[in-house]
Design a binder for these strands. Structure first.
Length: 938
RNA sequence: GGGCGUUUAGCUCAGUUGGUAGAGCGCUACCCUUACAAGGUAGAUGUCGGGGGUUCGAGCCCCUCAACGCCCACCA
């Protein structure tokens, strides 16, 4: 059905492109008309589902976000125009450490888990919260709220619940800022599909996930040494750990070997040397090991060594992990220096000697002699001396304990075999942390990964990765995992575990038999709610219960983003329609976390992949080719660029970058985008001028074109449309491979050819050969009709091809045909370019060979370029008359070009054309000679 | 140390099964031409990182080296 619609007259069109005005107008219109809404009634097969990344709101939104989100939006807009029912949600990742850190700093508060909740409490400054939130976070703010040793602590201490409320207040504000930018850049997300990872719904899904994994046997809790950040005072998972290069020192420490004969006396016999970079752990030494085949130490195995300074007897044992080529080949095992220590300890029957506390300070321990030592691991041959030495370390941080030990070793004769020497070492840090991780034994929840590695690798193979090589990163990571996923964090602003423990009569928690919440209770905070069968009065009392105080790793929630939006377990019908999804867009540095964990969850819950395709965006790099990040202190606010260059221009820059390719930030790219957008605007205005001149006012023509294409008769129009058809096909092909940049490139090239050549060539014909002021006859010539129809179709096609990239300017121009009016009767959505269908090639009345179209168009362009060149060379303007144009080529070419000469002559203002007298057979190149009019005759 | 990627004009980047090296920016000159001076036209610019190989022919395929980036491993 075709609506009768009138075009706007040129006088009604905006004079200049005022982008901020049209952005505002269309943003409001799209929201009002809901053109980006998901239709829950349509079947899965017609739906395109996107697992949008929920950005961490507690940072500053930078240009990199805009970059990658725009890329996804472009793909989504294409799918929408292909008729897909789009499910494009938007989420906010607001739980986790980033928010805690920000809240602590903004409100100057600190959480203590056991403090009582105060319902009336509000953070100071809350009335100016938007002001507080708008102050961008600086990395210079300490990660941890200072707890000054002098007791002058101005920080307000609040309960977990109060702390969470403060977090929610602030994240709400942060989300507003983010939403504002997303709307400005023109993301076509469905704002009704909004979630925040700390909201009730997400907590519920996270807890359901946990309980489902418990039921399926994928979860266990265990007290064991785990990687621990001493500042944040929480366990962390392998995926959040990074290595940092640092300078350490080797200390060559002399150990004495206790021979059988001097066992009683305690005097050492033979000596050996251990090279260590962690002398501060000497008191935590539990054994000395060397490789079983190491000939140097064969006679030591089975004997005992005596640690210097602390005089602790430790066994000398063979261990395969000892590398004979490193250091002296013999090393001490401490609890705990590194992963190997942990592994070795787990499989040994040696005691644990924990000397580093959860706060990273040396614990206050006492060495005793063997007869007193039944209840402690710290047994020394000379406890008094050991305690004398150790007392110097107590309460010091690991770093300063290391210094003190270095001094002690140096001062005590006979211990250091050589002066300390420098070495480069890689030290493990929590990615957000500032001090090295320690291994500290604590109780944590784990999700099993190691025993399912092969299946997880298979899942990765079933997913299509863009670019393909990103799959390798996934596989690499999965193969390299050596720990199960630790999902518990000793933090506050996160999803609590829906778990309590029974307390026996002696007051001990029964961790072996956790009490899990019923699904009906979720979301639940065990610190507030009471487990089934208990009363609040029994909390923390013998015979009663206690809550699990930990919260989940933020990835435990983020890994459920598909299920969060599909309402897994809550609405099976909806879930069915959305899961597995079509597309996961994300960046490459979180393949090991977000992508990996999401694949884990989908597999464990439903034995499926979470999405068919993953699109990995590149990074935005500084001009010095480092990742552009807020840490550089460079505030590159996306909004400035939108203000300066327009949203469409910023989108252009984003869409020019291919998936997975890092892009150096270059402001010039915005200018190019802006130029292109302006060009589209001006070209459209020009075309509307031609329409008006010819009284070609019925904008519905183009929809009937497939039947009435017989109007297209002129050879130039036909080959042009063939070229445009090719562009349509290529662009679609690129889009289907998620190569939006390729699609943009082909459209852009074709559009410039349209403006520079086609428009110039038909200008005179389209005006009926009349001057600007002259009135055209009512009955247009066929040449004019052909041009008008071609222009109309071309404009429509370009608007559609550009629509995913430039939603604003294309919509604005689309509206000039007055088709963007709301149906008064049905109040149906507007006919927006974004709800229009993606173009398909126009059937031409005469079949045109595509190679012929290309080569002929190229030759035509060659001729007019030669004409322009001649005018430029002779410093004439482009309307300067050409007295004679002489062309030379084979008869065949001459034949085919003949039909284009009228348009060429019009465009070049050529008075006379002549073919060169000599017919050259097989001439490869077209010969063009241009003779201009003289100044007198022109 | 292992892996992945990148290396093409001064800059940012294209280059789809191997077939005469491309675009934009910048630069130079010219032009107010019935859309556009926030414009247009024309022009100059390259040992395609180095070396070797396969081929009639290599920016593209193979080997090798180098630089840069990223991921992983490396705490005795």
């Amino acid at each position: 059905m075709t609506k009768k619609v009138q075009r706007k007259t040129v006088s009604e069109l905006p004079d200049k492109l005022n982008f901020s005005e049209i952005e505002k107008k269309w943003r409001a219109r799209w929201e009002e008309d809901g053109i980006y809404r998901w239709n829950s009634d349509r079947p899965r097969s017609e739906t395109y589902v996107v697992d949008t990344p929920p950005p961490t709101v507690s940072g500053s939104l930078h240009i990199g976000h805009v970059f990658s989100f725009t890329q996804t939006d472009v793909i989504v807009r294409y799918q929408r125009m292909c008729g897909k029912n789009i499910f494009y949600p938007i989420g906010w990742d607001d739980n986790g450490l980033a928010t805690e850190r920000r809240v602590q700093n903004v409100f100057d508060i600190r959480c203590e888990v056991d403090k009582a909740y105060q319902p009336e409490w509000k953070p100071e400054g809350v009335e100016h919260i938007s002001l507080l939130a708008s102050k961008s976070v600086s990395k210079t703010i300490p990660t941890v709220p200072a707890v000054p040793a002098n007791g002058e602590d101005t920080t307000t201490v609040v309960s977990r619940q109060n702390f969470i409320e403060a977090c929610q207040l602030l994240t709400k504000e942060d989300e507003k800022i983010y939403e504002h930018i997303w709307r400005r850049i023109g993301l076509s997300v469905d704002w009704q599909l909004q979630y925040a990872t700390i909201d009730d719904h997400c907590r519920k899904i996270s807890q359901l996930s946990f309980l489902d994994l418990v039921n399926r046997g994928y979860v266990y809790s265990e007290e064991s040494p785990t990687m621990w950040d001493v500042d944040f005072q929480t366990a962390v998972a392998q995926a959040e750990v990074e290595d940092r290069e640092s300078v350490g020192h080797f200390y060559d420490i002399v150990f004495k070997v206790e021979e059988r004969e001097d066992y009683e006396s305690g005097n050492g016999g033979t000596n050996f040397i251990i090279s260590t970079t962690r002398p501060e752990l000497l008191a935590a030494c539990i054994a000395v090991v060397a490789h079983p085949d190491d000939q140097r130490y064969q006679d030591l195995f089975g004997k005992y060594a005596i640690t210097p300074l602390f005089n602790v007897r430790v066994p000398i044992l063979p261990a395969v992990h000892a590398d004979p080529s490193k250091g002296t080949g013999i090393l001490m095992v401490c609890t705990f220096g590194d992963v190997m220590d942990v592994e070795w300890w787990k499989h040994s029957d040696q005691p644990i000697r924990q000397i580093i506390g959860r706060d990273g300070k040396m614990l206050d321990i006492k060495f005793v002699n063997a007869t007193e030592g039944a209840s402690t691991a710290f047994v020394s041959l000379f406890p008094q001396e050991a305690n004398h030495h150790y007392s110097k370390l107590v309460g010091h941080s690991v770093k300063s304990a290391k210094k003190i030990m270095a001094k002690l070793l140096a001062e005590t004769p006979g211990i250091l075999a050589a002066p300390a020497r420098e070495t480069k070492q890689a030290v493990k840090y929590y990615e957000k942390g500032e001090r090295p991780l320690e291994f500290i034994s604590t109780r944590q929840w784990f999700i099993k990964i190691l025993e399912h590695r092969d299946q997880l690798l298979e899942q990765g193979e079933k997913i299509k990765w863009h670019p393909e090589h990103m799959r390798v990163r996934y596989e690499h990571w999965v193969r390299g995992i050596n720990q199960d996923w630790c999902i518990s964090r000793q933090r506050y602003f996160g999803v609590p575990f829906p778990v309590w423990y029974h307390i026996d009569q002696a007051g001990n928690c029964d961790y072996q038999n956790p009490i899990f919440a019923d699904n009906a209770m979720l979301p639940v905070d065990p610190m507030i709610a009471v487990p089934p069968g208990y009363t609040e009065g029994q909390r923390n009392l013998p015979g009663g219960f206690c809550a699990d105080k930990d919260v989940m790793d933020t990835w435990a929630t983020s890994s459920m983003t598909p299920q969060i939006v599909s309402h897994w377990q809550l609405n099976p019908q909806r879930h069915q329609k959305l899961f597995p999804m079509d597309l996961r867009p994300q960046s490459h540095e979180i393949i090991r976390t977000w992508a990996f964990y999401t694949i884990v969850k989908a597999y464990y819950h439903q034995q499926t992949i979470p999405w068919e395709q993953v699109a990995i965006s590149g990074w935005v790099l500084d001009p010095d080719r480092k990742k552009m990040s807020k840490s550089k202190g460079k505030v590159i606010t996306p909004e400035n660029f939108i203000d300066t260059y327009s949203a469409d221009a910023v989108r252009y820059w984003s869409a020019k970058a291919r998936l997975g390719v890092d892009t150096a930030f270059e402001e010039g790219q915005f200018k190019i985008g802006q130029k292109l957008v302006t060009k589209i605007f001006n070209a459209a205005k020009f075309i509307f001028g031609i329409f008006e001149h010819n009284k070609y006012n019925d904008a519905s023509e183009v929809s009937k074109l497939k039947e009435t294409n017989k109007e297209i008769t002129e050879p130039l129009d036909l080959i042009w449309l063939e070229l445009l058809n090719q562009a349509v096909v290529k662009s679609s092909d690129y889009f289907n491979l998620l190569d939006y940049a390729g699609a943009l490139q082909i459209t852009e090239e074709t559009f410039w050819a349209f403006c520079d050549h086609y428009l110039e060539l038909i200008k005179v014909r389209a005006y009926g050969g009349k001057g600007a002021g002259e009135q055209i006859e009512a009955s247009q010539s066929q040449g004019v009709r052909s041009a008008l129809v071609t222009l109309e179709f071309s404009l429509h096609t370009f608007l559609k091809l550009f629509a995913p990239f430039f939603p604003y300017v294309t919509e604005e121009i689309w509206s000039w045909s007055c088709v963007c009016v709301k149906d008064q009767q049905t109040a149906a959505p507007v006919d927006s370019v974004h709800s229009s269908t993606w173009p398909t090639p126009l059937p031409l009345p005469t079949e045109i060979n595509s190679d012929f179209a290309q080569s002929t168009f190229r030759q035509v362009v060659e001729i007019i370029s030669a004409i322009r060149g001649a005018k430029t060379a002779q410093k004439r303007n482009m309307r300067w008359r050409v007295k004679k144009l002489t062309l030379g080529h084979s008869a065949e070419i001459r034949e085919s070009l003949q039909a284009f000469l009228p348009d060429i002559c019009n465009a070049g203002n050529v008075a006379q054309v002549e073919w060169s007298e000599v017919e050259v057979a097989g001439l490869q190149e077209l010969r063009v000679a241009v003779e201009l009019d003289t100044a007198e005759t022109n």
